[in-house]
Every structure is written in structure tokens, then in C-alpha cells.
């Protein structure tokens, strides 16, 4: 019961989804399944929120290490949640919460600065990683180094300045043009080889799931 029903659901939903591509009467089912998927994903967000509350309340009650910061998480979570679900400060129920009200204010002044700085901080870690990657230890690493260097130079004014003396007949050797060429030819070829590999991987995994061969998603006692 605990194993069979989920398997039946996966197999039948998988087959119906494939059928929606090939059989016109079943065509709307594909769109509906996508919407069902989105709706269940929202419940997954609720599950994530519930779990976050559980973990941090537990940390708070048991006075675990750094429990004080759990208060910050819980307050931030609850204030944003109330502001968003209650549409506090918005003109009406139909107002877009991402454009007006307390939710929008918190988004632009708390969430956005925190998120973008978090990612911006990665620039420094990428710089230290690039120091290790850019040491031309062998031929492959040198190729990587040259490609990255040309792409970086090609997007800056210095790249243009360094090679703008090139004659028109050799314009491909100008660093910005070379950067564009790398992106549109060898990079495209590499990306395409990877995409074909991913495509084959997804197709084979999907077949394994629909045929009930792959069951690891059901958990340890999936048999």
C-alpha cells in the first residue's frame, strides 16, 4: 500500500503525460498536469516554511548554539508572511504584492539587498577559485585560461583598446570579436554536446521512472 500506490500514480501519470503529446483528446491533460505540478510545488513551499519554523522553534526551546539567531529567522519569516498573505499596506485585494505595500517594501529593502550582496560576495570567492584554476598546469587548463581571459577582456573597454589597430581584413582577431566567436562557435559546440548528453540522460531516466525500474525517490523501504 505504501509502495504500490505511489508507483501506480507515477506510472499512470507518466503514461498520461506522454499520451497528451500524441493524442488530441488528452492534450489538455498535459497543461493541467503542469498546473497541478505548480500547485503541489506551492504546497512544497508551505512545507518548507513549516519545516523552517519547526527547526528554529526546536533550536530556540532547546537553547542550542546560536539560538538567538533563530529568533531573527522566525521574526523575519513571520513579518514577511503576514505582510504578504495579508497584503498589508496594499490598496485592495487585487493589488500586486510585489509592487505595493509592506511586502514590496520589505522585498526591496531587505530581501533584495541581502540576496544580491550574497551573490556579489561570490565574486571574491570566484576570484580566489580562478587563481587556482588559472594556473596553467597543463594544456587543458591553459585552454580554459585563454578562453576565460578572452571572454573577460572582450567584455571590457580595454579589450577593444588593445586590438582596435587591427586591419578590417583581420577583424576576427580583435578581442571583442574573438570573444563573440568563442561564444558562438566552440562554446556552442561544447554546450550542444553537453545538452545532447543531458537530453539522453533525462529520456533514459524518465523511461526508468515511468516503467517503475527507478524507485529510489520512494525512500529506503521502496524495495
Amino acid at each position: 500500500m505504501r509502495r504500490e500506490i505511489p508507483l501506480i500514480i507515477t506510472i499512470s501519470v507518466g503514461f498520461l503525460a506522454i499520451l497528451s503529446f500524441f493524442s488530441p483528446p488528452f492534450e489538455p491533460l498535459g497543461e493541467d498536469f503542469t498546473l497541478f505540478f505548480d500547485i503541489i510545488a506551492v504546497f512544497a513551499f508551505f512545507l518548507g516554511g513549516g519545516n523552517l519554523m519547526r527547526v528554529h522553534i526546536d533550536k530556540l526551546i532547546k537553547r542550542k548554539k546560536d539560538w538567538g539567531f533563530s529568533i531573527v529567522t522566525l521574526v523575519g519569516f513571520l513579518v514577511m508572511l503576514v505582510a504578504g498573505l495579508g497584503k498589508i499596506g496594499a490598496e485592495s485585494i487585487t493589488s500586486d504584492i510585489t509592487r505595493e505595500g509592506l511586502f514590496s517594501t520589505l522585498y526591496y529593502n531587505v530581501h533584495l539587498p541581502l540576496g544580491s550582496t550574497m551573490y556579489a560576495l561570490l565574486a571574491f570567492f570566484v576570484a580566489s577559485a580562478s587563481y587556482r584554476a588559472f594556473r596553467a598546469k597543463n594544456r587543458e587548463a591553459t585552454v580554459l585560461l585563454i578562453a576565460a581571459f578572452i571572454i573577460l577582456l572582450g567584455s571590457t573597454p580595454i579589450g577593444q583598446m588593445l586590438t582596435n589597430w587591427m586591419p578590417e581584413g583581420m577583424s576576427i582577431l580583435e578581442i571583442p570579436n574573438l570573444a563573440v566567436w568563442i561564444m558562438s562557435s566552440p562554446n556552442l559546440a561544447g554546450q550542444r554536446a553537453i545538452m545532447i548528453g543531458i537530453g539522453l540522460g533525462v529520456v533514459s531516466m524518465s523511461l526508468r521512472l515511468i516503467l517503475g525500474i527507478e524507485r529510489t525517490y520512494l525512500g529506503k523501504d521502496s524495495g
Partner: peptide
């Protein structure tokens, strides 16, 4: 910690 809390609520509300 603030980012974690605010982010979780943000995606819940938008969803």
C-alpha cells in the same frame, strides 16, 4: 538568518 526567514516567506507568498 534574516535572509533565510524572509526568503522562505517571500516564495510562499508569491506562490
Amino acid at each position: 538568518h534574516l535572509f533565510v526567514g524572509v526568503s522562505a516567506a517571500y516564495w510562499m507568498c508569491v506562490g
